[in-house]
Amino acid sequence: MAEEPGRISTDGRRRRAKRGDGGRLREELLAAAEALLDDAGEDAVTIRAVAQAVGVTTPAVYLHFENRSALLHTVCLGVWDELDREMSGAGDGDGDGTADPLAALVRRGSAYIRFGLAHPLRYRLVASGPATAATRQVADACFRFLRDTVGRCVDAGVLDGDVNALTRAVCACLHGAVSLLILQPESAWPDDIARYADDVATVAARGAAALSGTARQ
């Protein structure tokens, strides 16, 4: 069987990859890292282990990923696409998205918490780990979704204040709610995760209203 480009040959020398093979190798590296992460946990995902799993040298991995954190975070990005979909749908839960923007903020906040608790390892790696391009991408996307809804609340007069400042406060509540639990064994988690997510998201939204001085009596 002919050796594939980018692999270590039988004589120990790595063949030069053909044009177009770099993208394929990158996907294989990600698949290997994901398998290691799911089978043996975070500590098993090393540059050397991924290189060995795919059959390339470690410098070949560094051609695609700056370091181990970048590799891990890129593996996690796929599942974060799910959060984009969930938060997008949650914002439209009241029909045209304009009837009750504060309720939409609660729904999006609840979706964020449920997602984090459904994917605790990937959430912790990306949201609480060292900053990489992946962490910035995730943070920007989440902030954008929530800022959009907070902005609608301000436009509707149910919140008053700087949109970015209010959004940061809401994000802190949501991230804290996830981080509080993923640092504990699941046996210590609330029995009703959906209720927990809704309760915290409601507190975050109403807290933003109180902070802005427009809380309803």
Rank of each mutant, 00 (worst) to 15 (best):
E34M: 13
A40Y: 07
V163H: 01
L29N: 11
R16K: 15
G213T: 12
A204M: 05
G161Y: 06
T202A: 08
E4F: 09
L72V: 10
D198Y: 02
A2L: 13
H119E: 08
G97F: 00
S110Q: 08
V158N: 01
R7H: 14
Q52A: 11
R13D: 11
E27L: 15
R15G: 15
L121C: 05
G157K: 14
Q52F: 08
D162K: 14
A40P: 02
L211C: 10
V56R: 08
R136E: 07
T98A: 05
G41C: 09
D192T: 11
E86F: 00
V75S: 07
A127Q: 09
G78D: 11
D11L: 15
A60E: 07
I8D: 02
G23F: 01
Q137W: 00
T135M: 08
A188S: 11
S110W: 00
S9E: 10
R19I: 09
R216Y: 06
L102C: 04
A194S: 12
D100S: 07
L25M: 15
G41Y: 04
E4K: 11
A134S: 15
A141H: 00
E66A: 09
L121E: 06
S88N: 14
V178Y: 00
E4V: 12
V203E: 05
C153N: 11
G97K: 04
G116N: 06
S69N: 14
G6S: 05
V200P: 01
A118C: 08
A133C: 09
M1I: 09
T57Q: 10
W189C: 03
T149N: 09
I113Q: 03
K18T: 13
D191Q: 14
F145L: 07
R14P: 13
A60P: 07
V170W: 01
H73E: 12
A32I: 08
R216I: 12
T149S: 13
G129P: 02
D21W: 02
A134Y: 04
L72H: 05
L30I: 15
T214R: 12
G12R: 14
A17L: 14
L25T: 08
D162Y: 10
G55V: 12
A139V: 06
Y123T: 05
R108A: 07
E86S: 10
R19P: 08
V106H: 01
L117D: 03
Q217P: 15
T58K: 14
V200T: 15
G78N: 10
S110A: 15
R85D: 11
G78C: 06
R19M: 07
L63G: 02
R206W: 02
D94K: 02
